[in-house]
Simulated scan of single mutants.
Amino acid sequence: MSFFNKMLASVGIGSAKVDTKLESDKVMPGSEVRGIVEIQGGNTEQHISDIYLTLNTTYIKESDDKKVNVTGQIERYHITEAFTLNANERREIPFSFILPLDTPLSYGRTKVWLATGLDIKNAVDPTDKDYITVIPNELVNAVLHAVSNLGFRMREVECEQAPHRLRKRLPFIQEFEFVPISGSFRGRLDELEIVFFPVSLNQTEILMQVDRKARGLGGFLSEALSMDESNLRLMIHQSDIPNLQQKLQSVIAQYS
């Protein structure tokens, strides 16, 4: 009977099951994620070689002149050393880790999830998938509010494959695209694109692309040659929050 159970477990029938439970599914980059991994033993004893968590998202990548969605791993965490799980045994393994500062935020189409995996020799490895909501910290939130107060509406947010000049630790960047619907930039800009490159909890670098609106013959020529776009970098610190809207307005106005 034991041999029969092992044969079944090797194809996933009556094997161990895993379920990850988070203390909170809403978290901001740089903060602690805590939870437990619950493992329920199957019909037979099994040797667990490894338990790991991977933090993932999807991003758009160009392949053979086509845009495809691929999974990008943000980080991987080793949870425990190898052990033997007895038949029908139940274990709870606590874990905690700091969510990386460069984790994309849950805006637009961006989805972030935690995948739990068990490595079991000669068996189908059980997995679990838990989505989390990644919210901006105070500094990034202040930037988004300032841009909104300047009359811009968030149109689209996507993770895209990063060009080599912008590639950091991850192979992708998260791009926030805004359009002016009111205020002084309406009629002067087509769109504003922002990418955040966090330096610390209190500091972030911002890459902005200002897309000017074509005006007259010369303007349309500039647009056709992509000369209507200006790229600028700006370092923002926590101390900038009280005057952030004025600072962004001044910078954007120089290129509009």
Rank of each mutant, 00 (worst) to 15 (best):
Q203H: 12
L234C: 12
S200R: 08
G218Q: 06
S222I: 02
L232K: 06
R165N: 12
L225Y: 09
K168C: 11
P163G: 02
R188E: 13
E193R: 09
D211W: 00
I206A: 03
N231S: 07
D190K: 09
A214S: 13
A224F: 08
I206S: 09
K213T: 07
L170K: 03
I173G: 05
M235G: 07
L225S: 05
K168I: 00
L189V: 06
L232M: 14
R167T: 13
N231C: 06
V179D: 08
V199M: 15
H164M: 10
E223P: 03
R215V: 06
E229V: 11
R165Y: 06
V199D: 06
H237I: 13
V179R: 02
G219Y: 09
E223I: 07
S226D: 01
L234S: 08
F220W: 04
F197K: 05
R215W: 10
F185I: 09
S222N: 15
R167L: 10
E177Q: 05
F176V: 10
F197L: 04
F220R: 10
L221N: 07
I236W: 04
I173S: 07
V199S: 13
E175N: 12
F172A: 06
I206G: 08
G219S: 04
D228N: 15
G216C: 08
Q203T: 10
G218H: 06
S226N: 15
